[in-house]
Each structure stands twice: as C-alpha cells, then as structure tokens.
C-alpha cells in the first residue's frame, strides 16, 4: 500500500486540495458570501500548504535510495505526477484572485 501511496501521493494531494477548496466555497455559499475575503485567504493558505506537501513528497522521492529498474520507474511516475499535481494546484488557486 505504501508504494501505491507514494506513487500517487502528489495526485492524492491534488484531490484533497480540490475537494477542500470546493467545500470551502460551498460552505461560504451557505453561511456567508462565496465572494467573502476571509474565505479567499483561508483558501490561499490551504493551497500553499498543499503545495508544500507536494514539494516535500517529491524531494523525498528524489532522495530515496535504490537504483533498481522498477524502483526508478516508480520514482519517475511519482515525481512527474507530483509536478502535474503542483501545476493543477496552482491553477486551482488562481480563481481566488478574481
């Protein structure tokens, strides 16, 4: 299970980030205004946290020992997945500015 989680870790964080922002916006829609500034700052903080997590995961993967063919391949999948996840998270954060 651990190997699966590290391979898809970046994307899992992307999913958590997306869900978090969506729930935040929905909650704001019910309890206050979705345009409220406080929600946007919380969203931004959450995005930065998720980005940091993705970066941490990627750097740990890169430093992990093992030169085996399979391990190297799984590492490439994990790191490039984290890269795509990071792009996704940054894009997902952009609406907070508008």
């Amino acid at each position: 299970m651990k190997r699966w989680l590290t391979m898809t870790g970046g994307l899992l964080i992307w999913a958590a980030h997306f869900l978090g922002l969506y729930l935040l916006a929905s909650a704001a829609d019910v309890w206050s205004s979705p345009e409220a500034a406080s929600g946007r700052w919380i969203g931004l903080g959450f995005s930065l946290l998720c980005l940091a997590l993705v970066a941490l995961l990627a750097s740990r993967m890169l430093r992990r020992p093992g030169s085996d063919e399979t391990v190297g391949w799984e590492r490439r999948v994990a790191v490039t997945g984290a890269l795509v996840a990071a792009i996704g998270i940054i894009w997902q954060t952009a609406p907070l500015a508008f």
Binding site: A25, P34, V84, G88, W91, Q92, P95, F98
Partner: peptide, 19 residues
C-alpha cells in the same frame, strides 16, 4: 453556481488536458 466554484471547475478542466 457561485462564480468562484465555477472558476475552480474551469481550472480543473484545463488541468485535465495536460495529461
């Protein structure tokens, strides 16, 4: 739908074209 929610989905719809 609230504009900010719509924008999240717009951003994700672009992200899905990267892969």
């Amino acid at each position: 739908m609230p504009q900010i929610s719509i924008n999240y989905f717009s951003a994700a719809s672009m992200a899905v074209s990267v892969p």
